[in-house]
Design a protein around this nucleic acid. Structure first.
Lengths: 154, 154
DNA sequence: TTTAATTGATATCAATATAGTATCAGTTAG
DNA sequence: CTAACTGATACTATATTGATATCAATTAAA
């Protein structure tokens, strides 16, 4: 069971880079190299994010992409919805319809409850929050490097 | 983002049927017909569950499958692990390895936290619990039918 | 004004995962 | 003996995921 697909993973990391360079344009190539992602694949993701008004672009030399919204307003939940579709339990049947199969119903109900838990968790993770952790951590890393060889797990 | 695949969905519902008929053998065919699942596909799932000691089987005429363990000890989390693999975030890298990419690290850490929430939720849902809901609900359904046309959502 | 660095748009492909089917051998109750 | 079963396994189809390729349009700068 995979929580994040490559698309979402790449998209989030691209946004983190854009969030760290707010105000200036960053090219797809620069992101792809830095984050080690397939260039053309990433470009597709960036275009998708433009369509969802998360970022803007500028064509031509010195062009690139720039964060459009406040990083604290960009939620991982939305990114999951864009790139993986909304979290959903097996097939959705119409509301107020008679349950063809009772056990299916009970199971669905239970899963829907968990689904909401998951959604609210992802709702709370924003690009802004991740950026702050990123910054806080980089100091921690250096500190760790000096006093201990044990680094963070990959 | 699909939480349960058909495999897990079918497996759980098959277990619910077996749980409702504890002590006697139920054939794959009976389950497939009642639950409207593809017969051969279901058989594969049942065999997988035998391998994991969740159920036992008897060959020949009047053979079939029977629940091996206490329904309260069969957790949806385990079924997800069997049929969809353990919940995991993008690719796993070895522990205590140096983080090649810091943003990947931070992201992973956050997702792992949510992953644990999801796991503990699914850990708490057992076949036993679902069975009790199933029984509780069937009464409710009849009650509803009498006083109101509004039935449960599919 | 030409050129190189860029995005826009889109087509295609490969790999993997999911869902489902088919077949045949072995077991067993009646 | 036979029909109703499971065991085992091979196969197919479809969908999803991940990735590549191509060409036109735009733009900063030499």
């Amino acid at each position: 069971m995979k929580v994040l697909t490559k698309k979402t993973d790449y998209a989030i990391r691209a946004l983190l880079m854009l969030g760290a360079k707010r105000g200036s344009y960053l090219s797809a190539k620069a992101i792809a190299v830095e984050q080690q992602m397939p260039y053309q694949f990433l470009r597709g993701l960036l275009q998708e994010m433009i369509r969802h008004n998360l970022i803007v672009s500028k064509e031509g030399v010195k062009g690139g992409f720039m964060l459009e919204r406040d990083p604290d307003e960009i939620r991982v939940r939305q990114l999951i919805e864009i790139f993986q579709g909304a979290v959903q339990v097996s097939e959705c049947v119409f509301r107020k319809q008679i349950c063809a199969n009772r056990s299916r119903c009970v199971l669905r109900h239970e899963i829907m409850r968990i689904e909401e838990v998951v959604n609210s968790e992802f709702e709370q993770v924003t690009i802004g929050k991740l950026l702050r952790k990123l910054n806080a951590g980089s100091n921690m890393m250096s500190a760790l490097k000096k006093e201990d060889k044990t680094l963070q797990e990959g």
